[in-house]
């Protein structure tokens, strides 16, 4: 489903070269709920950006849903992002001057789709996150938890194979965080593969698999627990 072989990413300046990710080998199966943990600056976001085709990698191979993404054009990468991946951000990133309906519609605008199907998808997504009745409201009329639910609706409206979530509960209190987490679990139960970056060990435990990143090195906890690595 998502397969990285010896993927590395460097950031270069005139003076130094920083290894953001080193020799990542990872295989995520369909329907998995994977959490990514690690300290700040360890490379979690870089990993998510590579997985979400938001940045290019420097070495290795990456197959997304069986497609080798190496050397794909900007248009092809954009289409893959749009059709295969849903993004959920820590700061929601809803557009303040669009209604909830129009916010959820955004990724659907980038593909051709008839208006009936588009409407159905938007309404179903909002229904799923429990905000169908507020579709004409604007983001600033909602609580943080509700805004994140709209962001989830936006991510799933395109019916992606993957959801990539970058600390989706980071800006929420514990009650709202739990609600969002339950929503993600529901979505995962319906077959969508989820990769979620989190700082919260409790949330990480709820996932089917945890990957820890430290200094750009990826450690799959299923194969090698962190304690072993530390030893």
């Amino acid at each position: 489903m998502l397969k990285m072989n010896h993927v590395s990413k460097y950031y270069r300046t005139n003076l130094i070269e920083t290894h953001a990710l080193k020799d990542v080998n990872l295989h995520v199966e369909e329907g998995e709920f994977v959490t990514i943990t690690g300290p700040s600056g360890s490379g979690k976001t870089t990993f998510l950006n590579l997985a979400g085709l938001l940045e290019n990698f420097d070495e290795g191979e990456y197959f997304l849903d069986g497609i080798d993404v190496t050397g794909l054009s900007d248009n092809a990468l954009s289409r893959l992002r749009n059709e295969k991946i849903g993004f959920i951000f820590q700061s929601f990133n809803l557009i303040p001057d669009l209604s909830l309906y129009n916010n959820v519609e955004v990724p659907l605008n980038f593909r051709s789709m008839n208006s009936k199907e588009r409407k159905e998808r938007i309404e179903n997504a909002l229904e799923l996150v429990g905000l169908a009745s507020r579709k004409e409201h604007y983001p600033n009329q909602l609580s943080g938890g509700q805004q994140q639910r709209v962001a989830i609706a936006r991510a799933i409206a395109g019916q992606p194979r993957f959801l990539l979530a970058d600390e989706p509960t980071g800006n929420l209190d514990s009650v709202m965080a739990r609600q969002v987490m339950e929503l993600l679990e529901d979505i995962n139960d319906k077959g969508t593969t989820i990769i979620m970056v989190t700082h919260d060990p409790q949330l990480a435990k709820r996932a089917s698999r945890n990957i820890h990143i430290l200094d750009g090195l990826v450690n799959d906890m299923r194969e090698q627990p962190l304690t072993d690595l530390a030893v």
Binding site: L54, N82, V106, P107, F110, R154
Partner: peptide, 8 residues
């Protein structure tokens, strides 16, 4: 955001 969500 648009680029992330699939705009070319």
């Amino acid at each position: 955001l648009y680029r992330a969500l699939g705009a070319s």
